[in-house]
Amino acid sequence: MVGLLKRWSGEVFREIIGRPPPLTGMKPAVLALALMLPSLSCTATTPEHAEEAGTVRWGRILETALASSGQTGKPVFALFQEIPGCAGCKQFGREVMSHPLIVEAVETEFTPLLIHNNQGGRDLEVLQRFGEPAWNYQVVRFFNAQAEDIIPRKEQVWDTGGVAERMVAALTQAKRPVPAYLKLLAAEQSPRLKEAVFAMYCFWTGEMELGRIDGVVTTEAGFMDGREVTRVKYDPQVISLPQLITAAEKVECANTVSVPATDLPGAKTTRLKVGTISGYRAAPKDDQKKQISGTAAERLTLSPCQATKVNAWIRTDPAKALLFLTKAQQTQLKGGA
């Protein structure tokens, strides 16, 4: 019986006609079968802890979320998701909604709300209220306490960087503080990032000094042309290549600079030797982020952007290094967890 009913699932509809029909437009018999599926499923996983929902601790009642938002000022992070869902829905849950930094940001900076887009009852009422299509792929929306969109609705934002970027935009629009780690995560995943390789006398120093520069997102110790180098990924919207080269020169971490061939015109200087990146290889793991080694931060699990900034400041300004950690990481660093 369950096998027969599963033929009516959204995933099979996609295979047959490319996209499942709207829930409200289904024939009564088919609608009844679809709504019976969750209760007949053999899985012991509850919907709120389903793979498609990730590891966020979700609220499920819109009115409760709006009331909480009104009391705390935290925007509502509303995930409209198909549960049980297709492979893409599950991937979104595993990769985006289970990312440790995304999870902590959702739970501490927002009011989490999960709405099933393939169910009846209260979920269907919420879909209709906000004009969300049923049986749709995942959509994240941000509401204020009056149930108004804080930033415009947008579909097909299915990657960690894209979700982080919209979280930053929603917090900014709501005039809420934006955690440094969330800004870094959005930048780290951005397709606009560019890279440059700087040669210097010591890549341990290079990672520390270059990592302090605003606009530098990640650093990596490596070798090129038989020399120690530091590979930098930077955000050109924050710092231009000429500005980056000047900043690297000021901290004596730019004997030469190498960039992709397409960036050569913007890297011309009167003093430095400028070339293209060729033959670069990363240094061994025990040569990476050397400033963190031997400190309490060594036991933390850090994202690449977090590791870059913590490595840059942990030895000289621990208080600043803390700014790039989540509250949970700060507690762990202080031995509280």
Rank of each mutant, 00 (worst) to 15 (best):
R129M: 13
C253Q: 13
A296R: 15
E209R: 13
A78Y: 03
V103H: 08
G211I: 10
C42H: 12
A296C: 10
Q291S: 09
L182M: 10
W58P: 02
F142W: 07
V310Y: 01
T326Y: 05
D235E: 11
Q189N: 12
K233S: 03
E51F: 11
K309D: 03
F80R: 01
P318R: 11
P242G: 01
L114C: 03
L323N: 00
W158R: 09
K175I: 10
I61N: 00
T331Y: 02
G161S: 07
P284Y: 11
A32G: 05
R19V: 12
A44G: 08
Q156R: 15
K6R: 13
I17S: 05
G161D: 04
P22H: 06
Y137G: 00
A247Q: 07
T316N: 12
T45P: 02
E148P: 08
G266S: 09
R315L: 15
T276D: 04
R166A: 04
E148K: 15
G222Y: 08
L114P: 02
K175T: 07
L127S: 00
L4R: 11
G121V: 13
N144V: 11
G18R: 12
A297C: 04
V259N: 01
T326G: 05
T270D: 07
T256Y: 05
I213C: 03
T326I: 10
C89A: 09
L323D: 00
P28T: 01
G211T: 07
G226H: 11
L62H: 00
T331C: 10
P22T: 00
Q291C: 11
L127G: 00
A196E: 05
K250I: 13
W135V: 02
A199H: 04
L264P: 02
I213F: 05
G59E: 08
A53K: 09
K268D: 00
T205S: 06
R271K: 13
D214G: 05
P47Q: 00
W158H: 01
D123K: 05
L272S: 02
S41E: 10
Q173L: 14
M36T: 06
Q119P: 01
L325G: 00
T43R: 08
Y181N: 04
G294Y: 11
C305D: 05
G275Y: 06
T219S: 03
F142Y: 11
T45L: 13
A248H: 07
P38L: 12
G206Q: 06
K320H: 09
M208Q: 10
W58Y: 04
A53H: 07
L184K: 02
C42W: 15
A312E: 02
P191R: 08
K285F: 13
F203R: 06
V259K: 05
I213G: 01
L79N: 02
E298N: 10
A180I: 08
L302F: 02
Q329V: 09
T326E: 01
P21F: 06
G54M: 14
A247I: 07
N118M: 13
W204S: 07
A180D: 07
G266F: 14
A145M: 13
L66S: 04
Q306E: 02
G226F: 14
T72K: 10
A50T: 04
V274I: 15
L101P: 03
Y234F: 14
G18I: 13
E104I: 14
L302Y: 02
T276F: 04
S41W: 01
A267P: 07
Q81I: 15
F143G: 01
L171V: 07
T308D: 03
